[in-house]
């Protein structure tokens, strides 16, 4: 019964989807928005990576919301896993020497790579979220190697707050500058393609990168049974 009902629901949905997609050809022309962004993105925001100019320029407010969503998840997960009784300490086998040494060796390199990704977010593929995820993966590796090395709680809290506040305050700074709106790019845009270009975009991406790195590390920490 349940199977039949579910299949019926799915079939109806599939039929609906087919009717719509006949009108949206695959690989067709660019939308009005898309072509506008590709043509004007570099002049408007100074970023050579048009996806970045959309993410932090035209749709920067979405990204503020996105940062908030991740913040909510990190905070909520912490509340969820800290709230109850502490999990009984599990028996953990010590990691082998290869893993321990290897993770210690790779850790700084991974951090460096993550930082590279978010610093160059406006020039090359990548950005704050991707860089942050890479940094968190470095911490995950270290946790696998040796469970006692953790990101300090005070550090984590200040980076989380600092990153979020940087974003909001830069937006508000744009508001105070004459003739500008919230999150408008009030710094000089520079020459697209150079490292120091695109005004506030690299600053925001560095802030996001650090914040996301810390938050995802916190998520991993909570899921692995970290205690506060």
């Amino acid at each position: 019964m349940r199977v039949l009902l579910s299949l019926a629901v799915v079939a109806v949905l599939a039929a609906g989807i087919v009717t719509v997609l006949r009108d949206v050809p695959f690989g067709g022309n660019s939308s009005r928005l898309g072509s506008h962004f590709v043509e004007n993105g570099r002049e408007d925001t100074g970023a050579a990576n048009i996806v970045t100019s959309v993410v932090l320029g035209y749709r920067g407010f979405d990204t503020l919301g996105e940062v908030t969503v991740l913040f909510v998840a990190a905070v909520g997960l912490g509340a969820l896993l800290v709230a109850g009784e502490k999990n009984a300490p599990r028996k953990l086998e010590k990691a082998s020497m290869v893993l321990t040494t290897g993770s210690r060796f790779l850790f700084p390199l991974i951090l460096l790579f993550g930082a590279y990704i978010f610093i160059h977010g406006h020039l090359t593929p990548g950005g704050g979220f991707q860089g942050g995820a890479i940094i968190a993966s470095g911490y995950l590796l270290v946790y696998l190697g040796s469970r006692d090395r953790r990101l300090g709680k005070n550090w984590a809290a200040s980076i989380e707050t600092g990153g979020g506040l940087t974003f909001v305050l830069l937006g508000l700074a744009g508001l105070t500058a004459a003739g500008h709106w919230f999150l408008s790019n009030f710094l000089p845009l520079g020459v697209p393609g150079q490292l120091l270009s695109a005004g506030i975009i690299p600053i925001i991406y560095v802030a996001i990168g650090l914040k996301v790195g810390v938050e995802l590390t916190g998520v991993i920490d909570s899921l692995m049974g970290g205690t506060e």
């Binding site: 908030t68 709680k153 005070n154 707050t161 909001v168 937006g171 508001l175 709106w181």
Partner: peptide, 23 residues
């Protein structure tokens, strides 16, 4: 006053709580 402050200010305040909690 700009209505965007309705969203930006509470968001900013929420971001500061982790540090406030530490202090």
């Amino acid at each position: 006053v700009n209505p965007v402050l309705l969203l930006a200010v509470p968001m900013g305040l929420a971001f500061t709580v982790p540090v406030i909690e530490r202090i």
